[in-house]
């Protein structure tokens, strides 16, 4: 096993956040599940037809899904953006770079350990997400595709945060810029799409030019939404979004590897 991964995980799990964050995360998901359940019941009090399982299962699943992605996107910079800056801050980077660990091992250790913690939260949340099964309307396929989509998004954002960690010397700066990157992808991309779409008023999604659709294809929430569409309609757009996130992550990895030894110069 890569010694970096073992070291990183050991240090991470030793911190207080190692158990506080999973606990808070599950409480948040549980809270959302209870809220959606009772809210749905409330909405059907005066309904003409009887409330059926999928009437609760589908909104529950969607609410949990988007809550999960929101929380995890907020947590990714906390773990990844400080991964390399902490080595610079505590002056341990030189020890790593003069050992026989390769640059790839150092990067992979940092990436995997921070991603594994976020994935731990994702896995811990699966039973809560699976509550929707009890009500119906949601199957294993939906659970699989949304989990895969979420992993791709988180992997990509983790690589981007790690890149910022290689650029800056201080964790505060790297974390701030990582959050800015999350905001750009989640909010700015949506605003850009709205602006573009306004110039093509009334046009269907398929008829919009690629320039107009492109910002939304790089939006994590839209990517997640794409995974919920009918599998027969899903693939072309889902694959484009997936490719964008994989490309973003790959570029971030390449730039991080280039930067790994660069900030030693002035030190």
């Amino acid at each position: 096993m890569n010694p970096m991964i073992r070291k990183e995980l050991r240090q991470l799990m030793r911190e207080r956040r190692g158990w506080i964050l999973p606990s808070l995360y599950l409480v948040a998901l549980g809270g959302v599940a209870i809220f959606v359940y009772f809210q749905t019941l409330q909405m059907h009090v005066n309904a003409v037809r009887f409330l059926e399982g999928p009437d609760i299962g589908i909104p529950l699943f969607l609410a949990l899904l988007y809550t999960q992605l929101t929380v995890l996107l907020l947590l990714v910079p906390i773990f990844s953006a400080g991964a390399l800056t902490i080595e610079k801050e505590q002056r341990t980077m030189a020890g790593l770079l003069t050992s026989l660990l390769t640059d790839t091992q150092i990067w992979w250790g940092k990436f995997l350990s921070s991603l594994l913690f976020v994935l731990l939260l994702l896995v811990a949340g699966l039973p809560v997400l699976s509550l929707a099964f009890a009500f119906g309307g949601v199957g294993l396929w939906e659970l699989f595709i949304v989990t895969t989509t979420t992993v791709v998004i988180l992997g990509s954002m983790s690589a981007v945060s790690l890149y910022w960690s290689s650029v800056f010397r201080r964790s505060v700066a790297a974390t701030a810029v990582s959050y800015a990157s999350v905001i750009v992808l989640c909010v700015v991309s949506a605003l850009l799409y709205v602006a573009q779409e306004a110039t093509h008023r009334g046009a269907a999604w398929a008829n919009l030019p690629l320039r107009a659709r492109a910002p939304l294809l790089a939006n994590p929430f839209f990517f997640l939404t794409l995974s919920l569409t009918d599998p027969r309609e899903l693939y072309p757009e889902w694959w484009v979004s997936a490719a964008i996130f994989v490309l973003l992550g790959t570029v971030a990895v390449w730039l991080t590897m280039r930067n790994l030894r660069r900030n030693i110069d002035a030190g």
Binding site: Q11, E15, Q90, R91, T98, L100, L101
Partner: peptide, 29 residues
């Protein structure tokens, strides 16, 4: 790197590791 031992000016240690764990990490490294 195999033949050189380098001790940097004001180099740091992982404060949240045990002494043996730290040495084990570098032995693996």
């Amino acid at each position: 790197r195999r033949v050189v031992g380098y001790l940097a000016d004001q180099s740091g240690l992982y404060q949240d590791m045990r002494v043996r764990e730290l040495l084990e990490f570098f032995a693996d490294a």
